[in-house]
Write a protein that binds this DNA or RNA. Structure first.
Lengths: 252, 252
DNA sequence: ACTTGACTCTCCCCTTAGAGGATACCTTAA
DNA sequence: TTAAGGTATCCTCTAAGGGGAGAGTCAAGT
């Protein structure tokens, strides 16, 4: 510490940096930005800071913790009337981020869930019933790309937006969970409860742009039962599920 | 669309960009990174992409939505075994971010709360009882900076860490809210309920490194009542609160 | 007074994921 | 053939510093 000479404490860059748990580089940077000026500069160009600067630095760091850009911090400290406004703005930003991360987390969990079970999100649940893997692929291609058609109309809804896919996949997952639970709980295949659940699922899909008729769905469950990959996927979630789905569908 | 000539669809940069809702710049960038190579490059240097590239791009964008850096996406797509690991890592990251933003939001709300009431977070609640504003200031300086002392020992606990301050301030705020509620609900100043609440507050402070004896606290409430600034602060939150605090403290 | 080691200075390049712009070349329909 | 619009490369810029080079400075011990 170099203090008490000129009547006040003065700190070198390293000292101040240590006190505030930042690096010397940071102090250089703040100096260049005009955000924190040294109280004194020696002839050799050395920066020295007083206690006022320490306080100011702490205030800066407080705002920085709140992810406020340095440029804004500067404005905010020069003109205190910006304070409230900036903080309110930042609050909105946090709320958005919270929302976003919560959603992404859902997507991620879902994806991981499927990964652990051996396959990527199975989009087949979202489409009409076809009989062969090839038909499925074709349908997926079409849905996924809408190629010529989309191309000549408007380049919209083209990409599978994560957000949308998210919702659909979550619903699909919930649906399978629900059905598995019904099976475990001994709900009979023609029980109105389970019939209603399937109906809800179809309604949801239709409401979200995936036209899927009762007949399509029946066809779909049959395909799932017959196709090794899909049957295994379902059965690995709950033994008997593939068979249960068919039986329930037949009674729609 | 330039397709069907060589037997497969091919898209120009702009077309692909539109299809995937990205910019041409992005495609350039991905090309340079080796993340998404064109399926064909004309003599003039024009990039053309096929349907495989469109799919790959969509996969890239999916990961990008999850905030995974492009370099990692590349590795992840080259070697699928990284997938799970990367996603798990990203999940952890999201959880941390969620936690962080939730905490910062609390700090922010608190800060705004105080701002609206006219003053910055009042740290006086955290310290011993003094009689004059100057004594308070001195104490604050000391606590805030620990100057010489801290300096010669270890540069630690120096900065007012947002996190810690956060907890204390939240507790202080809760405490005042609770007391105000008790007052509104007609809880008598010597009711064990309210006495217990004060005791909890003191215990909390002591547990968090702010030694504050029963006598200190009594002294503090008296100061708050006598000092215009603090009395107004309390009374603006709840009429009668400053008086109630004194009465409750006297019966500790 | 001199040396040594720690400290400090300025300057420059690097990081992410592209955006923006300059300038030159290419393609396609009228 | 010409004009319009696509495309290419190259350069600079962003936020908040990190890393390092090369040179000068400070305080202490000899």
């Amino acid at each position: 510490m170099y203090g008490v000479k000129g009547g006040y404490m003065k700190y070198s860059v390293k000292e101040l940096a240590n006190l505030a748990h930042v690096t010397v580089k940071t102090l250089h940077h703040y100096h260049k930005l005009g955000l924190l000026m040294p109280s004194e500069i020696s002839e050799a160009g050395y920066r020295y800071y007083g206690i006022e600067e320490l306080k100011r630095l702490q205030e800066i760091l407080f705002y920085k913790e709140l992810d406020i850009p340095l440029a804004e911090i500067k404005g905010l400290m020069e003109d205190a009337s910006n304070r409230m406004q900036t903080l309110e703005k930042q609050k909105e930003l946090f709320l958005q981020k919270l929302d976003r991360y919560a959603k992404l987390l859902k997507t991620l969990n879902l994806s991981l869930d499927y990964s652990r079970k051996g396959e990527n999100m199975d989009k087949h649940l979202l489409f009409k019933g076809f009989n062969t893997e090839e038909e499925w692929q074709t349908a997926l291609e079409e849905q996924k790309n809408h190629l010529q058609k989309e191309y000549q109309v408007e380049f919209d809804t083209q990409t599978i937006e994560v957000e949308k896919m998210n919702q659909l996949a979550i619903e699909a997952k919930n649906y399978l969970n629900t059905m598995a639970a019904s099976l475990r709980n001994g709900v009979k295949y023609n029980d109105p409860i389970v019939q209603k659940q399937v109906q809800n699922h179809l309604d949801f899909l239709n409401k979200h742009g995936h036209a899927l008729s009762k007949e399509d769905y029946i066809q779909q469950t049959k395909f799932f039962l017959q196709d090794d990959f899909h049957r295994n996927m379902l059965e690995s979630q709950q033994i008997g599920l593939a068979y249960y789905l068919v039986a329930v569908a037949k009674n729609l």
